[in-house]
Computed example of a mutant assay.
Amino acid sequence: MFSESSAAEGAILMKSIIMYSSSPLGFHIICDQAAHEYLEKRLSLLKHPQHDIVVRFYRIPQENMINRIQREGALHSDHSAGVPGLMKLFIHEILPPTIERAIFIDTDAFFISDATQLWAHFNALQPGVAISMPSHPEQFAPDWHHANRICSCIMLLDLARLRELRLMDSSHYRGDSQHVPALAPPAFEAMFGKPVPDGDSGRMKYNGVKLGDQGYWWAIVSHRPEIFEHLSYDWEVSSCLMDMYYTGLGDDDADEETERHRQIHTHNDAARARIVLPKMLHFNCLEGVDRYYEWSGWSEPDNDLARRWLPAVRYHVGFKWLWLNQPASNATLSMETLFDVKFADELFAESRTASDDPEQH
């Protein structure tokens, strides 16, 4: 979360997770000062959570993020998320090795169910799978290399496996014969070709990458399908598909056959005929606003998206942090902040320097 607006959205996401959770929670938030301050003010209102909550802020300066991208060698993005958006490719390097799994979720989303169900999905993944996210094989966009066939908006990440695979490259890793070569470069070259000069900057870049980090994730999972698994559309009811599979609030007595008849964009889902049972809503692709809940379409009486989902948006945005308190609970919420976080490739370089220095032994 980089900016107060991203934190304003992310706070609603966090609130929804806490509202419905049946388990203790750990939040790892990669952020800047503005986002940190916004979130801390709201989290401080929660004195008596239902379950223990640990919140860890990772404060990474823009310069450090740029430097990590440059050490990879050829990453660039024309997406509005910019440099911070590319950090989604380095979560396994930012979080410490003690964190072996994580769920990443874009800030413009919120749960309407218990996230514990999603966490349990880790145990159902096939051996060797490191990444699970929704896939849309029927989508078609040659100019994007079909990167819209996945959504990196929500990802189950086996961080330990991604570290083992050495997902992303770095100038610190090159020449290291003791570990496997980084996974990403051959995947990127297979989809985009070899890097080419980026104008007069002197840097190299991959050509034709669209949708920011999602374009790179698409190259990775296309090249190494054995580490990828589809995630049910239940967890990605997305307004990028403005009809959102044509599900929504209303008709509370609808049966399965009625829902199945209404559904669209689901014929290629891994579950095929199974109906979508919404568990997380994602309000992306709403143009013209920094915060999805301020979108002008919500106030249009005939807007179909507003008709089906506006009550859910209003409820989760307006639910007060104070109402999350459970006075009889002995659970606690704790927060800590890590400043100037080092990436794993930096720590690797430092460890090699130390091992080569006789005075360190």
Rank of each mutant, 00 (worst) to 15 (best):
S113V: 09
R262N: 05
R101V: 03
L322E: 15
R352I: 10
P97N: 07
E346W: 13
F339Y: 15
N123L: 02
A124D: 14
K15P: 09
A273R: 10
R314K: 06
M133G: 07
R163C: 00
E300R: 08
T116P: 03
V237K: 00
R166K: 03
R224D: 12
M19D: 06
I12Q: 13
L75D: 06
V83S: 02
S44A: 12
S296H: 14
H76P: 01
W298E: 10
L86G: 08
E336G: 04
R56I: 08
T247L: 00
W323D: 15
L39H: 09
I103Y: 10
H28A: 08
H316P: 05
K47S: 14
D198A: 13
A328C: 09
E9L: 06
S23P: 03
E257R: 08
M280F: 11
W298N: 04
A312K: 10
E259G: 00
H223S: 11
L86M: 15
H136K: 04
I103F: 07
R291T: 10
E226A: 01
G202H: 00
S171V: 13
R274I: 00
Q70C: 04
R308Q: 04
A354P: 09
I227M: 12
H179F: 11
H316D: 09
P84Y: 07
E350V: 09
